[in-house]
């Protein structure tokens, strides 16, 4: 019994000499009935509970005053500094999103044309009331000078009152079913076979308009390279195979799961 107790507690009892383990002792342990003491929960407090971690929404307060006639814009650089999110107090593209890769792709879209006139803008993603911009010069981390120019360009485009997004883009927007089929095929044929080597997997969670939400699981969840995989691998695969896909959201909780990097 003392031996059993020591296994559970991991503590050595100094008052008693260690007795070498032999087969008779083993038999004694195995044949002895489990007593009330051994089955008490006191023997297992060192084992943590395994519980399911729930994620609940953060209640955020509005970032802009309501009913303002002014065009208000907030800039929020990403922690890595490679892109900056601009949130505007009005819709720029309702229900859908569009990824502009270069100046040529901006033809007819006033907002994108003005933004690509700024020297350091590499790509831009317009989604609802936001614009996400990546810059050409990856060595610069201070977004303030460029962000001010971007703010001015967005404000000018809105105040001119023309079509922010070209009519051709709006007319050619794919259906959700087309997006779902295309993205699911890329995931099945290209992405998942690639990440499976690292024990990972990617799941298409939702399609809204031409925007998709994915979740990374297995070895990808919590992996320190997940951001790189997402931006350089998954985004590229999705946009190559389904050029009209818009925003790609990742709703993976990289701190949870059974195999996270941060555990």
């Amino acid at each position: 019994m003392n031996f059993i107790k020591r296994i559970f507690t991991g503590m050595k009892q100094d008052a008693e000499p260690d007795v070498p383990m032999d087969s008779s002792v083993t038999e004694d342990i195995e044949s002895s009935p489990v007593t009330e003491e051994a089955s008490q929960p006191e023997a297992t407090p060192s084992f943590p509970d395994v519980r399911r971690v729930l994620q609940i929404p953060v209640i955020s307060e509005g970032i802009f005053p309501e009913n303002s006639d002014e065009v208000l814009i907030k800039a929020q650089p990403s922690p890595a500094g490679d892109q900056c999110l601009f949130t505007v107090n009005r819709s720029l593209m309702t229900g859908n999103s569009w990824f502009f890769t270069d100046f040529e792709s901006a033809a007819g879209s006033t907002l994108a044309e003005k933004l690509f006139c700024l020297e350091d803008v590499e790509t831009l993603l317009v989604c609802e009331c936001t614009v996400t911009i990546t810059r050409k010069d990856k060595t610069l981390v201070d977004w303030v000078p460029l962000a001010k120019e971007v703010g001015t360009a967005i404000r000018e485009a809105i105040q001119e009152g023309g079509g922010l997004i070209s009519e051709k883009i709006i007319a050619d927007l794919p259906t959700e079913e087309e997006i779902r089929e295309g993205i699911q095929k890329v995931i099945d044929v290209e992405v998942n076979p690639g990440v499976a080597g690292h024990g990972g997997n990617v799941t298409l969670m939702a399609v809204r308009g031409n925007s998709v939400t994915i979740q990374m699981g297995g070895g990808c969840q919590g992996c320190s390279a997940a951001d790189l995989t997402l931006k350089q691998g998954i985004h590229t695969s999705f946009r190559t195979a389904v050029p009209r896909v818009g925003a790609i959201f990742d709703e993976t909780d990289h701190t949870a799961g059974l195999n996270p990097f941060f555990s």
Partner: peptide, 27 residues
Amino acid sequence: VQFGGVNLDETTEVNIWQDPPVLAFDV
């Protein structure tokens, strides 16, 4: 940070960690 409602039991726990807010500025 304020979180919304949730029901907990003996099988669950709820995340209450949020990273510090990222710097945002008006442009």
